[in-house]
Design a protein around this nucleic acid. Structure first.
Lengths: 140, 140
DNA sequence: TGATTTTATTTACCTAGGTAAATATCGAGG
DNA sequence: CCTCGATATTTACCTAGGTAAATAAAATCA
């Protein structure tokens, strides 16, 4: 109703994502980590050592993005990059320090998300999650 | 159900925003425009000439972001920046060319959004829109 | 009025994401 | 075996977003 038009979707999604990543970034500051780096750590903790290709396909970003982020993360001691059997690929794994800090950091980011959805009822949360999952299903 | 946990919200929102902006960017290529630049044009067409502060507050981004984007847009002939009565501020307005191209470009971006939500029913679209509007309402 | 604080914009420096093109290695066919 | 296409990663170059600090003009106030 009122001035709803399709264009607002992009605008709205953008604002919500920006708010959320800004907030997550600020909570991760103490841990010396950024939101995108955390996404990679989460992925590696969940699936174990992975090639870079597996990571960028999982995160739905392009290969150079992951190359850059991983090289920063290697410098700051979160991951190591080993050569795979296939010498073209690099297998990424978490360092011991990263694995040790995982749970504590996860609690911090979970907290941010809980606060973000605090204004929604349980059904609304579920609904939002389902709609976002469904969104764009035909096109990508 | 299944492996729903809060963290997925950030992940999901990120993926959807990336898909949408990638798609919008690719359709705007012909017009020599980027999605963020289009957001500013949309805002200026809707509200008329504005100061930079009004723009970044509307878009919910920081001031330097708008400074940069506007300077690119001025270079490519979309906007002009005039000094305001208050000599600290700059008043931004669309050029005649920008106003002339507006409708055509809007049709292109509307098309992308329609395709994105094509997998949702009318009620689902409305629901998604309302949930996104509500999201984070307490915290920001 | 003169000093101080606030506000608008900019600059410098960071991360993140994208495309296009360059490498390097792998795999399949001839 | 050797060439050629496919695949994994990287490099160079772009836009976008953020913070912190600099600048300039306005506003406040003693």
């Amino acid at each position: 109703m009122s001035n709803f038009n399709n264009r607002n979707l992009f605008h709205l999604l953008n604002q919500r994502v920006r708010y959320l990543s800004k907030e997550i970034n600020s909570r991760l500051l103490d841990h010396g980590l950024y939101a995108s780096q955390w996404s990679i750590i989460f992925c590696l903790e969940k699936y174990g050592p992975m090639t870079q290709t597996a990571i960028w396909k999982y995160l739905n970003v392009e290969a150079p993005t992951v190359t850059r982020t991983l090289s920063r993360m290697e410098k700051s001691g979160w991951v190591v990059r080993k050569q795979g059997e296939d010498k073209r690929e690099r297998v990424i794994e978490l360092t011991k320090e990263a694995r040790q800090k995982f749970t504590q950091i996860q609690q911090a980011t979970d907290q941010v998300e809980r606060e973000m959805v605090a204004c929604l009822s349980a059904e609304e949360k579920e609904q939002l999650y389902l709609l976002l999952k469904k969104l764009g299903t035909d096109s990508n």
